[in-house]
Design a protein around this nucleic acid. Structure first.
Lengths: 131, 131
DNA sequence: CTAATATATTCGCCTGAGCGAATGTGAGCG
DNA sequence: CGCTCACATTCGCTCAGGCGAATATATTAG
């Protein structure tokens, strides 16, 4: 109580104020996800994805982990309890949004397909879908 | 469930992604407030305040009511339940933020002062402080 | 009617940030 | 070493939106 977090609030909301970034967060869900899947699901060019992921990273909203050539991104639980509750509500909201549901369905399809698209051969699949 | 509200999410977060607008929402609290008080408390020029209030109005976050020469703004409860919960959490967060607390204290002082500043003579005081 | 007051809008300037295209970088392989 | 792959960054452009200054509008007073 009595903290000064106005700047942190602005930072969080700016990070959430973009459709592409909301789609990325939606795809991460509760697991880390490889960049190549974001590119595949959002059907856009790779630099655009990387730029938005960098934006989220600078805002402290996601973290990155390298595994050989691949980079995995995952959502970071905000340290502040208010931010955490807002974030949790956002994720619930995303779960109920139709276009977001379609993105997640496409992710499942792409990951579980017997024959993966050329760009994804050998890419590390998300844990939640392979376990 | 299963709705498409991605655009509404973006709209909400863009509205919240600015320090001046957060300060305005903080001052509104649970009551409507007259524009002249925003100008007085934020110690800034009036057009800036009006522009941010217009932004909030376009985003559906506040509503305006005219009373003679004066305009009162108040927070609108978002119709969507997720938006409402996020908004409620934001207001709680604002309540605990130190700079925001100072703004509210200054509002109380200005409203309850025996001699109001010249700009505020005759301005309708917020209900919560006069009742 | 005119004048004053409270608020809103417009204008010109500047920065942040989104975009596609091109280029840079780090890891693994032969 | 050099090549490729996965990803990151930079460049040039465009546009949203923040700012102060000036102006417009609405209401009330006289």
């Amino acid at each position: 109580m009595g903290k000064n977090e106005t700047f942190e609030m602005e930072l969080l909301f700016r990070a959430l104020a973009d459709r592409t970034r909301l789609r990325l967060l939606n795809l991460m869900g509760d697991d880390e996800l490889c960049v190549c899947f974001f590119v595949e699901i959002l059907r856009t060019n790779q630099p655009k994805i990387s730029r938005h992921l960098a934006y989220l990273r600078r805002a402290g909203v996601v973290s990155a982990r390298r595994e050989g050539k691949w980079m995995h991104y995952r959502i970071v639980e905000p340290p502040d309890e208010h931010a955490a509750r807002i974030f949790s509500e956002v994720r619930q909201w995303l779960r109920e949004d139709l276009p977001m549901q379609r993105d997640r369905e496409r992710l499942v399809k792409v990951c579980c397909a017997p024959q993966q698209p050329v760009q994804l051969r050998g890419a590390p699949r998300p844990l939640s879908l392979t376990a």
